[in-house]
Design a protein around this nucleic acid. Sequence first.
RNA 1: GCCCGCGUGGCGGAACUGGCAGACGCGCAGGACUUAAAAUCCUGUUGUGGUGACACAGUACCGGUUCGAUUCCGGUCGCGGGCACCA
Length: 803
Amino acid sequence: MSIPYNHRAIEQKWRKNWEEHPINVNDGKKEKYYCLDMFPYPSGNGLHVGHWRGYVISDVWSRYKLMHGHYVIHPMGWDAFGLPAENYAIKMGIHPSKSTAENVKNIKRQIQEIAAIYDWDMEVNTTDPDFYKWTQWIFVKMFKKGLAYEKEMPINWCPSCKTGLANEEVVNGKCERCGADVTKKNLKQWMLKITAYADRLLADLDKLDWPEKVKKMQTDWIGKSYGAEVDFKVEGKEESITVYTTRPDTLYGATFMVLAPEHELAKGLATDETRNAVEDYIYKSSLKSSVDRLQDKEKTGVFTGSYAINPLNNAKVPIWLSDYVLADYGTGAIMCVPAHDDRDFEFAKKFDLPIIQVIAKDGKEIENMTEAYTEASGTMINSGEWDGMESSVLKREAPAMIEKRGFGKKTTNYKLRDWVFSRQRYWGEPIPIVHCKDCGAVPVPEEELPLLLPDVDSYQPTGTGESPLADIEDWVNTTCPKCGKAAKRETNTMPQWAGSSWYFLRYVDSKNDKELVSREKADKYLPVDMYIGGVEHAVLHLLYSRFYTKFLCDIGVIDFDEPFTKLFNQGMITGKNGIKMSKSKGNVVSPDDLVRDYGCDSLRLYELFVGPPELDSEWDDRGIEGVYRFITRFWNLVMENKDKNVPETKELVKARHKLVYDITNRLESFSLNTVISGFMEHNNKLIDMSRKGGVDKKTLEVFVQLLAPFAPHISEELWEELGHKESVFHCGWPEYDEKAMEEEEIEIAVQVNGKTRAVVTIPKDAAKEEAVAKGKEALGDKLTGNIIKEIYVPGKIINIVAK
RNA sequence: GCCCGCGUGGCGGAACUGGCAGACGCGCAGGACUUAAAAUCCUGUUGUGGUGACACAGUACCGGUUCGAUUCCGGUCGCGGGCACCA
């Protein structure tokens, strides 16, 4: 009896061995491959089996690249600033610097259990001053380029987290972190001008090998639209109001105009009769939260008393105010064409405003219109000189026509807003700005960075719109770097996304104290070739990182403008019935026990076997038994055959090539669950062959090589058992020969009218006559009626059509 | 409301460009070994009918294209996700 499989001893042995003899070494000659995980924030709850999956996927891919002779950059770090870490610290009553350090330690231990080939020399932590020095440095650079600016405006405010939020952090009117209803608060904020990059962020999506879903989400988020700005004169006044529309073709149908209550002209348009009502409406709107505004089912509004003149036909249209028009999109004012827009139609019906149809539906005017006709297709009617034109054509041409006639211009708009970058919280990078009475906002000189986050006892958020830093007088009070007079520090901190927007650049030169990253190393090791993480960051981290990368490229720090060449989103692991794993639900499965009982190798395989890596999968502990059985059976197979000197048979060679073919192709297409089932299937076949006469050594070796990225410990052990001195990871990836796996005879289904009635064995490239004859023979008396047609697709099917 | 994606056994899931539906695994049932159990091994496992070879039905539902459809097309229902008054 040979040695039984002992995962504990084997895994311990190889962990130690890899530590002493690293397998992924940069010799300066190998081609680099950068495979990156989205770095975790150090949560106090530790890792569950769901976190494992992403890390296993990336490690399998990294080891696969390693076996192809690459030097693999596969780092790990900590996204340790920000709300999650701080909220946890507040809850536990431990200072965030302390709780964060503890959590990092614990999670690092757990991550090491995965046995990934992480290069811990590269490790970064966003809360490390040597790291956030450069986070602040980027901010200063942006400030100097005019991309960071201060603005007082109503921003999204989470009353629970007591901080302002970026647009991207508000999901369905709720805080992305805590789920509380988001309100509006008027605050002076630092903003990043991400909108300056809107066009490039949109256009460059084409360059990326990313899931279509994520590209689409970013496209929609950027939300580029094409249309025109049209100027309407206000009757009896000097002013004119500019509206933005994507449907200038419907200009003749504009029967009224609506301004956002916050529009700068709103108040001034009121007449003596309407003044009270108008001011009342503006005041009430200002009190409404964004959630209220969204949830209002009925449209509200007030007539200003003023009229505008449609520049096309000089029609007089009433000007209304309504909060369904957004102040910060387009011009904050719209022309309303109730016949061809749902919202305008609703508003017109409610306030009894005229409706003029300008596009014919099915060639005619609609009687008793009950809903807006929103298609841009049909012939123009009631539109003066435009009558008879096709609306879709006019929609395209109208902006230029309007521009030519001098009452507007062709333009585009984006849904993307500038990034609210201030947080009224303690646990973040201090914004390196000094406010001076004379010089205004002055950046902290670059040589004085990092601007350290002061240590405080009271780090709870104040809720007043001021950061806790505002209370630390000897920190706040400073001198102006420009004029030397007394000045005050900016007390807001940066959002969690600041560090994560560029951390991937730092790994390859993490100890550089002169530069963010040396240009030499950046050119050599960047960008990221493969990025693996959850889809939840589609419009947050992934958009911000692209923006940062483009900026850093523009100022010459790096020479590429897209950070992540290829992106893979792994699905979530959930508990029973697809319920998200959480402590409160009590359905969290910790990897620790499973590693102890079944071993790291088994858990790695099972993480992949549960389902397609890109889809969510329900965790079921029992399934790991099957994987453990496979590993044990494979172990036994190798142990029984390794010293038997079994000669290679044709059948064994065929099986070997088929094995390499299956595993390689499935791995290349990221079908990792079927890679594992492929291993199992081939293992079963080999066990069968082993009983019939044995399995040759070469086949066993190839199997071990293929298994290595997935189950590294057992593979190294068996590789050694097979007589090798060198690590299996340095012995290349096996190749297959399609000719070698071809069968001379194949089984082929014989159908009658498309239904399988028999299976015959025929030569692989049998001629039609032969195949059909054999098929008919096999069918025997199952074939009745007159034969109408005989179909033979070599290698696929024989189908006899009979009546 | 708009835009994506998905519906396959008791369960997780296979089926590459249309070609034997249900690979692989879990679970379950039966058997071998054992005093017994665990572990291990073997057999069976979509449903209905039949002792049986076999027959019929079957990939959410209805219809279409095709010699042939889980796969392509049209419609319906259900589930999940994104956006949500962006003019």
